[in-house]
Design a protein around this nucleic acid. Structure first.
Lengths: 199, 199
DNA sequence: GCTTTTCCATACCTATAGGTATAGAACTTT
DNA sequence: AAAGTTCTATACCTATAGGTATGGAAAAGC
């Protein structure tokens, strides 16, 4: 990905560290709310260095999303490995609480980007929506397997139960952003799990 | 609220119409995503007219929020009048689907503002959060009455069940923004109601 | 009809946005 | 050590942001 130069003066900063810092900013302030000055200040590099290393603001944002998915959304991939639909739901809900309240950044960056980037350049919006869609598909497929296995008492559809779960996760993110505590959000997850419709 | 001038040349535009147009824009593009040029173009007035009529962008936004609450969030006030907690939940969930997919603007403006204004001037953020908090309190009080009336089978708390409901409504809004259809969102509401924990 | 008040239109202000040209310094390879 | 790269620093570019000064036109009250 990174064309690592063998000749010439080597880069003086660590792109991984810089990218992590960019992620922090985009997560906290959103794509449009984060200016290049914010970025270069926090990353400790100058404007031309940023452009040489990352192209432009949009590709930097995409790289930050990549890092976010890898570091923070791993729980989704793990969740769909769980043995039952109920266990999947539990992992997803608790995972979203963890991400939304675990660090210094509140809420899920995906949700923040989905809500905040609808009026932004289509290329970014489409990218964000596509990422969300592929995560959704993972869960839909898993839920379909659970339905086929007869796990659900009430008749339902894989897409319906998935959208229901995602709605809760998204709501958890929204509330985390407006200041809800970890324990308050765990109550939300528990409420959902208490009346979860599969055995 | 509006100091209506008796002397001098009367205003040539209808402030209510103009405000409705401003609401549309803020709803679609968010506070920061809506520029004064966007506003004046859509409202059909000039910049000084906007400032004379509404003060500045921030107060215009607050006025738009007022209008939004009055026109679009009335269902919340109606919901808490419903006879049972289950009926309250049903009214809230279906109402949020209606608002999120009813017109040309997708999602709930409150959610959009909560997510989009966290990094914006504190005065706006605090206002948005306060509005959300007061709506929440309405539901908490109603749920407490339902608990006191013994409506819930499973032991729960008014704040937990309220946050759970709000999470669903917020998730519905997020999904509406990223393109979910009305019928898809109705599935979310139905999924929640099918396993609603009160009789 | 005159005065006064308020409106609208144009043009402008400062600050900041994202992005880049230029030039010199620093490092690697040969 | 010299040559060849690629870095960083500074300064700048254009576009747009929110907001305002100014002047002339229009409608009300007297």
């Amino acid at each position: 990905m990174e064309k690592l130069a063998t000749r010439g003066r080597p880069r003086e900063f660590d792109t991984d560290v810089a990218l992590a810092e960019a992620l922090r900013l985009f997560w906290q302030k959103g794509y449009e709310g984060t200016s290049l000055t914010d970025l270069t200040d926090a990353m400790g590099i100058t404007r031309p260095s940023l452009y040489a290393a990352f192209g432009n603001k949009e590709t930097l944002f995409r790289r930050a999303l990549d890092l976010y998915e890898k570091d923070k959304l791993a729980y989704i991939g793990e969740a769909v490995e769980a043995p039952t639909a109920r266990a999947v739901a539990e992992t997803l809900l608790l995972g979203s609480v963890d991400v939304a309240t675990g660090g210094e950044c509140r809420g899920c960056m995906g949700v923040i980007s989905m809500v905040g980037c609808q009026s932004v350049e289509p290329s970014i919006r489409d990218d964000v929506n596509a990422r969300a869609e592929s995560a959704k598909q993972l869960i839909v497929d898993r839920m379909q397997r659970a339905i086929d296995a007869g796990e659900f008492a009430v008749p339902t559809s894989a897409t319906a139960i998935t959208r229901y779960l995602l709605a809760l996760m998204q709501g958890i993110s929204v509330q985390a952003q407006s200041g809800a505590s970890r324990s308050e959000l765990l109550e939300v997850a528990e409420s959902a799990l208490l009346s979860w419709p599969s055995r």
